[in-house]
C-alpha cells in the first residue's frame, strides 16, 4: 500500500522525462527512417554519400580525439597539482569555480572570447605581429576552420577534465604511497607501477567524456564558422535550417542518428570504465 503511494510520487518526474526526453529521442531515430510521405524508408541515409558529409564526421572524430587527448593529459596534470592544495581552500575554490564556469558556460561566449584573443585583432595576434613580427595568419585565416577549433575547444576540455577526474585522484589511498616507500620504492616507482595503473580506468573515463563533449559541441563552432558545415553538428544545422521542405527532417534525423551511434558507443565504454574504476578506489 505504501509502495503504491510512493510510486504515485514518481509520476510527475516519469511523465516529464518521457515527454521531453524519451519521446524526442525516439523521434530522432524514427525520423531517420521516414520518407516525406510518412512511409518507412532507408533513403535518408543516402545523405552520407554526399560530398562533405562523411568528411564532416571524419573532422569531428579527429577534432574530438585530439582535443580529448590533450585536454585529458593537461587536465590530469592540474588535478595532480590540486592534490597539494587544501580542500575548501582558496586555491581549490578558485580552480573549481573557474573550471565550472568555463566547462558549463555557453560556447558562444567562449567563441567571442577567442576572437578577442586570437582573432585578426586579438591581443595575442597583435602582440605577436607588432612585437615579435610573427604573423600567425600569414598563410590565411585558420581560426574559422576545423583546425582553428582545436584551441577554443581546449578551453572547455581542460576544465571538464579537472572537474570529472579530480574526485578519482583525491580518493587515491595514501597508504599505497607509504607501502611503496616502506618497500624501498622511489617516487617514480610509485607513480609508474601503482598510482597510474590504479587511476588509468578513471583517466580513460574522463577521456571518453571529453570525446563525447567535443563531438557534440555545437555553439562554439556555430559562432566561429558561419559558412559551410565542416563538422558533424554543423551538418545537422544545415539540414535543419535549409528551407527545402519536409525532406530535410529525414536528413537531419539520419545525421543525428549517425552521431547518436558514435555517442552511445562512447558513453557505454565510459559507463563500463567507471564501474571498473570505482572498485579500485572505494
Amino acid at each position: 500500500m505504501r509502495k503504491a503511494k510512493d510510486g504515485l510520487g514518481l509520476v510527475p518526474f516519469v511523465a516529464y522525462v518521457v515527454i521531453f526526453f524519451a519521446l524526442p529521442a525516439v523521434l530522432v531515430v524514427t525520423s531517420a527512417f521516414r520518407a516525406p510521405d510518412g512511409s518507412w524508408t532507408m533513403a535518408n541515409f543516402d545523405i552520407f554519400s554526399r560530398p562533405g558529409v562523411s568528411a564532416s564526421f571524419w573532422n569531428s572524430c579527429w577534432l574530438s580525439l585530439l582535443t580529448a587527448a590533450i585536454g585529458s593529459v593537461l587536465g590530469a596534470l592540474v588535478c595532480f597539482a590540486l592534490l597539494g592544495c587544501r580542500e575548501g581552500g582558496i586555491v581549490r575554490r578558485l580552480v573549481d569555480s573557474a573550471a565550472s564556469t568555463l566547462s558549463q558556460f555557453g560556447g558562444v561566449m567562449l567563441a567571442f572570447a577567442f576572437i578577442t584573443i586570437l582573432g585578426n585583432n586579438g591581443f595575442v595576434t597583435l602582440a605577436l605581429r607588432n612585437i615579435a613580427h610573427v604573423d600567425i595568419y600569414r598563410n590565411g585565416m585558420w581560426l574559422y576552420t576545423p583546425q582553428g577549433l582545436i584551441l577554443p575547444y581546449l578551453f572547455f576540455q581542460i576544465p571538464l577534465m579537472v572537474i570529472s577526474f579530480y574526485p578519482a585522484m583525491s580518493r587515491l589511498p595514501g597508504h599505497l604511497a607509504e607501502a611503496v616507500a616502506i618497500l624501498g620504492g622511489s617516487r617514480w616507482v610509485y607513480w609508474r607501477s601503482v598510482a597510474i595503473p590504479v587511476l588509468f580506468p578513471s583517466f580513460m573515463g574522463g577521456f571518453l567524456l571529453l570525446f563525447a563533449n567535443s563531438f557534440s559541441a555545437y555553439a562554439t563552432a556555430a559562432a566561429l564558422i558561419s559558412q559551410g558545415a565542416q563538422i558533424a553538428p554543423l551538418q545537422v544545422r544545415s539540414a535543419l535550417i535549409s528551407e527545402t521542405g519536409l525532406g530535410n527532417a529525414g536528413a537531419a534525423g539520419a545525421l543525428a542518428t549517425g552521431m547518436l551511434i558514435i555517442m552511445v558507443a562512447v558513453i557505454c565504454a565510459y559507463a563500463l570504465l567507471e564501474r571498473r574504476a570505482s572498485s579500485w578506489l572505494e
Binding site: 529521442a25 523521434l27 555545437y218 545537422v236 555517442m263
Partner: peptide, 22 residues
Amino acid sequence: RVLMLLPIAIPAIILVVGYAPV
C-alpha cells in the same frame, strides 16, 4: 546512474532534431 548518463549520450545537438516536432 545509467539512466542519468543518457542525457549526456544524447546531447542537445541530437535531441534538437526530436524537439523540433515536440
